[in-house]
Measured scan of single mutants.
Amino acid sequence: MGFKLLSKLLVYLTASIMAIASPLAFSVDSSGEYPTVSEIPVGEVRLYQIADGVWSHIATQSFDGAVYPSNGLIVRDGDELLLIDTAWGAKNTAALLAEIEKQIGLPVTRAVSTHFHDDRVGGVDVLRAAGVATYASPSTRRLAEVEGNEIPTHSLEGLSSSGDAVRFGPVELFYPGAAHSTDNLIVYVPSASVLYGGCAIYELSRTSAGNVADADLAEWPTSIERIQQHYPEAQFVIPGHGLPGGLDLLKHTTNVVKAHTNRSVVE
């Protein structure tokens, strides 16, 4: 069995187990497998329904001669939608809004960016022009300005110390501490036991640490421990890039980060 097929099978099995364990909360999309990078042309966006009122959005972007996937989250909030992270750029984010209108038909009224990198804030200006209120932590807003990236308009308070959590509509926002970046936030959907790890969490097929220019490698494993301790009931975990899975993604990420750190020390 090929690795790609095995990865998709694991996603399907995880979703099936969740649907059985929580039949009222989960209505997993039966329309197909989780979209992969090879299936999404740059400039297009796919939506994948995880649970009743919960979707991931998947886009792709060219970077350094390669094409990478990027995940975000959409959560229903009454007759409105909360968006977590842009679709990595203005063109993708405009396509995301169009796809949401086509498939869901509810307005996106608020959006949260989970850290300051372009795959999370690139497209904020498109959201703002569409009347979406954009939010991020003060740290993310400051770092985005320093980096020359787009800056969300509103500040999220109460997320300055490791372990801080605040309720934001249908989700809980959690600051686990520094990891992929010093400002990275985690998003949890309690009604569906869905954990969105953003770039602080890796997919299972990833074996290298990737972009760690703004990471705190020493603190990252401790931050992941905080996530595990705060959300032990999480059933569906979405990484910032690639295929979702279960809580095993947290341990896998820790292993990859520690291996990278150990290699760096040896070198």
Rank of each mutant, 00 (worst) to 15 (best):
G2K: 08
F3I: 07
K4F: 08
S7Q: 11
V11I: 13
M18R: 06
A25G: 14
S27E: 09
V28H: 15
S30K: 15
T36M: 14
V37D: 15
I40N: 13
G43Y: 07
E44M: 10
L47P: 06
Y48T: 15
I50P: 03
W55Y: 07
W55I: 00
W55C: 02
I58H: 15
Q61L: 09
S62C: 05
G65H: 08
A66K: 12
P69Y: 15
N71Y: 04
G72M: 02
I74W: 01
I74Q: 01
D77L: 03
G78W: 06
E80P: 03
I84V: 10
I84N: 02
G89C: 01
K91R: 15
K91T: 15
A95I: 13
L96K: 00
L97H: 03
K102Y: 12
K102V: 14
L106V: 13
T109G: 12
R110C: 06
A111E: 13
G122T: 06
G122W: 06
V124L: 08
V126C: 02
L127E: 00
A133H: 12
S139P: 11
T140D: 03
E147K: 12
E147S: 12
E150K: 05
E157M: 13
G158N: 13
G158D: 10
G163R: 07
A165T: 12
V166K: 10
V166I: 10
P170Y: 04
P170H: 04
V171D: 01
V171N: 02
V171M: 03
E172P: 02
A179M: 06
N184P: 00
P190Y: 08
P190W: 08
A192S: 11
L195E: 00
G197N: 04
C199F: 04
C199W: 04
I201F: 07
L204R: 14
T207D: 15
S208D: 14
N211W: 07
N211P: 13
A213W: 07
A213F: 09
D216G: 06
D216Y: 06
D216R: 08
L217K: 04
A218K: 09
W220Q: 01
P221N: 11
P221C: 05
T222Y: 12
S223F: 04
E225G: 11
R226G: 05
I227A: 06
I227P: 02
Q228C: 07
P232E: 08
P239C: 01
H241A: 00
H241C: 01
G246H: 11
L249K: 01
K251T: 11
N255A: 12
V257N: 08
K258W: 10
K258G: 12
H260E: 13
N262R: 11
